[in-house]
């Protein structure tokens, strides 16, 4: 056991160092792929707070990406506020919207909640289009500033490190979160709401705050995303595809675990980007079909996701070895 955990740390350290020096030897395309995997991993981990740990299947998280992206970008372009600060405001705005969704989750279960979140995201998109004085409407907003003080970088390698840090922060957060009082409370509610009340957990408050935390993190992810693509528009951010992909990545990797989002993203994002690159994006839909097939296969064949499978195998070997 002692040896086992030493090995585990050595492996983690090696992977960590490899990830850090990756931009030094890999070409720009590979760096960009891994970078995007980190970003999606972070978004999937953010979703995991409510979708995995909370057991509330949201299909509206693209709305929180958009709220975060718009908040920090408007602050940046209209008021000159650096996104290093603006991202916290982005988190708060998205988090407030998340609290509203949390209130809805008190009444809506399962597919009804999923439907509600889809409608919520559509509503956010329409409102972003409607208030064009602030949001630029269908034209969107172009980020015109530059320089690292505005979280804008020359090379993809810089973004790589930014997203890497984001992803690591996400994993560490979930590690801490799942062992925290609040995390245990949220999982208890997922497992049995009445029993959770019976041990003193305030179900209403926990659900609302859980949704707000998830949205807060997703909003921050939205800021980072906007800083990377330099341009936001309602129809390219609030896409049901994005909401679906976030959920699919997490479910495939293993929902309700600190590593599920990362594992899912490391598998699905590079695969779909490669497919796109090979076929030059000429065949629309080819990369997306992958998400559908993998999601279907994993849910039917490997409930608990890939991390769940690995962990079960590992546990049974450990038990067998005793």
């Amino acid at each position: 056991m002692e040896l086992n955990s030493t090995w585990k740390w050595i492996v983690v350290a090696i992977l960590f160092i490899l990830a850090l020096i990756f931009p030094l030897f890999a070409d720009e395309f590979m760096v960009s792929i891994l970078m995007q995997a980190y970003l999606w991993a972070f978004l999937a981990m953010s979703w995991d707070v409510i979708g995995g740990y909370g057991g509330q299947f949201s299909l509206g998280h693209a709305a929180f990406i958009a709220l975060g992206a718009y908040t920090s970008t408007i602050l940046l372009e209209s008021y000159g506020v650096s996104p290093w600060i603006g991202m916290w405001a982005a988190g708060l705005v998205a988090g407030a919207a998340g609290a509203l969704v949390g209130f809805a989750s008190l009444r809506l279960r399962g597919p009804f909640f999923a439907l509600g979140t889809i409608a919520f995201a559509e509503l956010v998109k329409l409102l972003l289009l409607y208030f064009k004085d602030i949001t630029g409407g269908p034209l969107g907003i172009l980020i015109t500033k530059s320089g690292p003080e505005y979280m804008l970088f020359e090379s993809q390698a810089h973004y790589y490190y930014l997203m890497f840090a984001l992803m690591v922060a996400g994993v560490l957060f979930l590690k801490w979160f799942e062992a925290s009082r609040f995390g245990i409370g949220l999982v208890a509610i997922r497992e049995d709401e009445e029993a959770a009340e019976g041990v003193g957990i305030n179900v209403y408050r926990t659900k609302v705050i859980g949704a707000a935390i998830s949205a807060f993190l997703t909003g921050i992810g939205g800021t980072i995303y906007a800083q990377w693509i330099h341009f936001i528009r309602p129809d390219i951010i609030v896409k049901l595809e994005y909401s679906t992909q976030i959920a699919a990545i997490d479910v495939v990797g293993g929902a309700g675990t600190p590593y599920g989002g990362l594992i899912g993203a490391l598998i699905l994002v590079p695969l779909s980007l490669y497919l796109n690159a090979i076929f030059g994006g000429m065949i629309a839909g080819l990369s997306l079909i992958l998400y559908g097939v993998v999601l279907l296969v994993v849910v039917v064949m490997v409930p608990g996701g890939i991390y769940g499978l690995v962990r079960r195998k590992w546990l049974s070997r450990k038990r067998g070895g005793k």
Partner: peptide, 14 residues
């Protein structure tokens, strides 16, 4: 919910 979501994505992509 998840499997039919997968089917949905597959049908759309196809």
């Amino acid at each position: 919910l998840l499997t039919t979501l997968g089917i949905s994505v597959i049908l759309e992509s196809l």
